[in-house]
């Protein structure tokens, strides 16, 4: 006869105490909470030191850019309920603005990147504003169209360098600055966003996602809060785009390419949506693989699409969610 049993999960004591109203007392408990964070930060900061060869060092920066996009995607999708399929649109907007500022006005990256971030985010938010009342499918559809259509417009009107793009964009002074700036940006964005979603305003965002009627009845404008979140997410994307332009010293319509829309989504699904760390981990896994596959051309897109489908179909929770559970909970089999 088969023994009937099921898995039982119990929170570890420290987890319960640190989340509730109780104080944390000992240094062990502090360590329990801080170690994962320290590990993550130091690991990321050590990467540029240990990477062999120029090629893989460049990959670190690219991973950082994708991480910013993926953070934005996770934030919008899992904390506000807006599924954006248009990561490439943010990258392209930020990239072109930075390229123009640099080549036409001679501004250095220290200026172009922040300006492109803010102006780009403003532009994206403005352009997406009419679509904000939409939910679910509609929003996804429209965001999917934006990058494709913008690429078409640039091609058709032959503006902004047309199909050749804008060349001769300044690069970073050296690789250390290039890599550490982006890694530190990723870390700051990660912890900043985590803080944000746990503040009171984070509850408003969640309300917008799960219960927008109640938010309206609470005298809050849904569109206003959605705009704020779109601004944040597109700022991350535009920052990434501006960075990318300065790394490749070139800006072109390939920035509206699919990779930028699909990898962040795949990274989020693989790493664990709704955790904010998960998407970053996902990028650190996926982007290097994608670089390895570059020789096979578009096969890499097929590859992440299939991974994505597999993760979604098998309802996988994602790596980080799994790891967090193992870290915070005991598991044991009990007889039923």
């Amino acid at each position: 006869m088969i023994e009937e049993r099921r898995k039982e999960r119990l929170d570890r004591g420290i987890k319960v105490r640190s989340e509730g109203i109780y104080a944390i007392s000992s240094w062990e408990e502090m360590a329990y909470l801080l170690l994962p964070r320290l590990f993550l930060i130091s690991g990321m900061l050590a990467l540029p030191l240990v990477m062999p060869g120029l090629y893989w060092q460049r990959v670190i920066s690219i991973v950082g850019i994708y991480s910013l996009l993926a953070l934005g995607f996770d934030f919008l999708a899992n904390f506000v309920g807006l599924v954006s399929l248009g990561g490439a649109f943010f990258i392209g907007t930020g990239g072109y603005i930075a390229a123009i500022l640099n080549t036409s006005f001679g501004l250095p990256p220290v200026v172009t990147i922040p300006v492109a971030t803010i102006v780009g985010a403003g532009t994206c938010t403005l352009l997406l504003y009419p679509c904000l009342p939409l939910r679910g499918v509609y929003f996804a559809i429209v965001t999917l169209m934006y990058p494709l259509v913008f690429a078409r417009i640039i091609e058709a009107l032959n503006i902004l360098g047309g199909t050749d793009g804008i060349v001769g964009v300044a690069s970073f002074p050296n690789r250390w600055i290039e890599q550490y700036c982006i890694l530190i940006t990723v870390i700051i964005s990660l912890f900043g966003l985590r803080r944000l979603v746990n503040e009171d305003i984070g509850l408003v965002f969640r309300g917008v996602k799960d219960n927008d009627q109640a938010v309206k009845a609470s005298a809050l404008s849904i569109n206003l809060y959605k705009s704020i979140t779109v601004f944040i997410a597109s700022a991350l994307g535009c920052l990434g785009g501006a960075y990318l332009v300065h790394i490749y010293m070139w800006s072109g319509i390939s920035q509206f390419a699919l990779d930028f829309s699909i990898i962040p989504i795949a990274a989020t699904v693989i790493g664990g949506g709704g955790t904010l760390v998960g998407p970053i981990l996902g990028c650190f896994i996926l982007v290097p693989i994608s670089e390895l596959l570059r020789a096979f051309g578009t096969l890499r897109i097929v590859f992440y699409s299939l991974i994505l489908v597999a993760f979604i179909v098998f309802r996988s929770e994602g790596i980080v969610v799994y790891a967090q559970r193992r870290y915070h909970q005991f598991e044991r089999w009990v007889r039923v």
Binding site: D200, I201, L203, V204, R206, G207, D210, N211, Q213, A214, V215, A217, S218, A219, L220
Partner: peptide
């Protein structure tokens, strides 16, 4: 202001956190 016939609380939040959203409004 209004209530809903089919109640619309934020089910995943504790009761007292439910009021954070209205308290966030500029009127409050």
């Amino acid at each position: 202001t209004r209530t809903f016939q089919i109640m619309r609380p934020y089910y995943t939040l504790p009761a007292y956190k439910n009021l954070i959203v209205p308290l966030f409004s500029s009127r409050a």
